[in-house]
């Protein structure tokens, strides 16, 4: 009895160590696979962008980046991004509020509809607008009467970017609003607070980090949008070119260095956004703990 008892004791003590060793091996394997994958798929390409941009020296880089058409493209990218973020923040907050605080017929359809842009290829999104507002589109006669250009013009680009970024803000907010329930809002309403006061003083503080996170993701996506914009833009340099389109044009003209230099602007913006995202995530977590 005693002996077998001691044996069992040993087993019990030994098991965690064996487990740990197994874990060590698994951990090593997982880490190496991740590192190799990320280096090949992410770090190398990014490094290449920077490397190639500066290959012909600072001067060429500076010229490419400060080129008139590059600046114009940057301007359009900023405009369409700001417009898309503004529109989708507004819509996202309202949709999320509506979906989580009220029950109504067709709610599930609305929730699904918000996700459509995730599922549809951006090229198709672009084509949809061509078929709506282009020369072959049903709305074209009406639009041409009032001299409104949508396709191959800035409004079309803005609409395309809005379309592909619809889900980001709403998607971030819905789970947060759901998990927080309606109690706090009801408590405020019982004390006579108006709808707007409730939103400003109760709901907004509760969702602010999720909202900022959604805005940041939305911004990142809006800046990089290529497919839908490509269909709608018409590639008019200095007029309807966004940065990603400008990169492609330069590339097609065999101006590799310039094309990579312009890309590096996008990389830089992406890094800024990533930093902002991490800050928001960190603060949001702290905010939740407090």
């Amino acid at each position: 009895m005693n002996v077998s008892g001691a044996d069992e004791m040993e087993k019990v003590v030994a098991t965690p160590e064996i487990m740990l060793k197994k874990f060590d091996a698994a951990r090593f394997l997982l880490i190496s696979v991740s590192v190799v994958f990320l280096v090949v798929m992410l770090a190398l390409p990014l490094f290449t962008v920077i490397f190639v941009s500066f290959r012909q020296g600072w001067h060429v880089y500076k010229n490419a980046v400060t080129d008139f058409y590059t600046l114009k493209a940057l301007q359009l990218t900023v405009i369409s991004t700001v417009a898309a973020v503004a529109a989708n923040t507004f819509f996202g907050v309202f949709a999320a509020w509506l979906i989580t605080k009220f029950s109504f017929r067709g709610k599930k359809i609305l929730v699904t509809a918000i996700d459509i842009p995730f599922a549809i290829s951006p090229v198709i999104a672009g084509l949809i607008f061509i078929f709506m507002f282009g020369r072959i589109g049903w709305a074209y006669p009406l639009l041409s009467k009032f001299n409104i250009d949508i396709v191959f013009a800035v409004p079309g680009i803005v609409m395309a970017v809005i379309f592909v970024t619809i889900p980001f803000v709403a998607r971030e907010l819905i789970p947060v609003l759901n998990s927080q329930g309606k109690d706090e809002e009801e408590a405020a309403a019982l004390m006579g607070a108006s709808g707007f006061t409730i939103f400003r003083r109760i709901t907004l503080p509760n969702i602010k980090w999720a909202l900022m996170y959604g805005v940041i993701l939305c911004t990142a996506r809006a800046m990089g949008e290529f497919g839908a914009v490509s269909v709608l833009s018409g590639h008019l340099r200095g007029k309807t070119n966004t940065l990603p389109l400008h990169v492609e044009i330069l590339y097609n003209e065999y101006k590799y260095t310039e094309s990579f230099a312009v890309s590096s602007i996008l990389v830089l913006l992406a890094i800024v956004i990533l930093i902002a995202r991490n800050v928001v995530e960190h603060k949001g977590r702290k905010g939740n703990e407090a």
Partner: peptide, 21 residues
């Protein structure tokens, strides 16, 4: 009459305190 003007105080089951205040 809407909830706010009935002059009612309500203590919720999980208190529903405003967590950011």
């Amino acid at each position: 009459m809407n909830a706010g003007s009935r002059g009612i105080g309500f203590v919720f089951q999980n208190y529903a305190l405003f967590r950011y205040m």
